[in-house]
Design a protein around this nucleic acid. Sequence first.
DNA 1: CACTTGACCTGTCCGC
DNA 2: TGCGGACAGGTCAAGT
Length: 326
Amino acid sequence: MPELPEVETVRRGLARLIVGRTVRSAKEFDSPKSFPNAPADVTQFLVGAKVIQVRRRAKVLLIELSSKYTLVIHLKMTGQLVWVDRDPQTKSSGTASRLTSLEHASGSDRAADVPDNLSEAPDRFGAGHPNDSLIGELPDRSTRVMIEFTDDSKLFFNDQRKFGWMRLMPTAEVVNLDFFKKVGPEPLEDVFTADQFVSRIRHRNGTTVKAAILDQTVLAGVGNIYADESLWGAKIHPATRVKDVSDKQLAKLLKEIKYVMNLAIEKGGSTNKNYVNAEGKRGSYMDFARVFRREGQECPRHPGVLIEKIRVAGRGTHICPACQVE
DNA sequence: CACTTGACCTGTCCGC
DNA sequence: TGCGGACAGGTCAAGT
């Protein structure tokens, strides 16, 4: 799925595209799997409601409605939230300009925290053209929910693997979800310090450092791509036990997590395969990735040394055997 | 309790 | 070309 930078990119797009719009109807294509709310709830709290704001916590999107209900959405591996204007033919020309800045979310434009030795991301050319659309005519076979607004524009929840979910619930009850009770701090918030990170990750001293940063209760938002990218940045082998990583190395690791996530947000996220933003466009971080899905290519720090793919924490894992020694 | 593995699904790619 | 198996950005539940 989308990891934190991808979900944040979708959030920013939705904040621009759907805030202020009013829901006319909602249709679920594979009831009740994706959207199991009772039809009566949908009628009462979704239809007729206006979108107030779009928030994010960890990898979860929260679309707040004027009905005091919120759509809570987790995209998991292949989920997409795509907004389509009412007339697809004018999509490219009309979409962005027609929608003036309804809201700019706070803290959006913080500068990337760039470690000095990594001030330039390797700009090897990847396959992705940042604005390529991966979306054809919607709905398609992966569409699970379609929400139509009163201006005839539509929001599609597509999800090929059907791991994702969408729930309509009272806004006041969102904080009581088990996931939100357990999930760790937001890594990009300034109040989350290296000391806190070290203290939290030390509770996972017995496992590998990669498993620990993928653990959403340690910190929120790291997934497989940014785990590999940040561990390479910090020159830590992913299979190293947390107890064998020094506080200083862990502080460096957090700095790298912040760096890759900020860079990824700047690049509109990573499109490995399915991910698209709220306008159906891919992200370009993969063009800047140093190790993720680059097995067989040279390490940017070690010309002649090839990146390897191994398995750590049950996940495909990319390392430079020269800089990341267990 | 801490940690690891399988399950959830569909699609794609790779080797035989 | 067809078929089986492995694998894919996440998170739970069940197992050790």
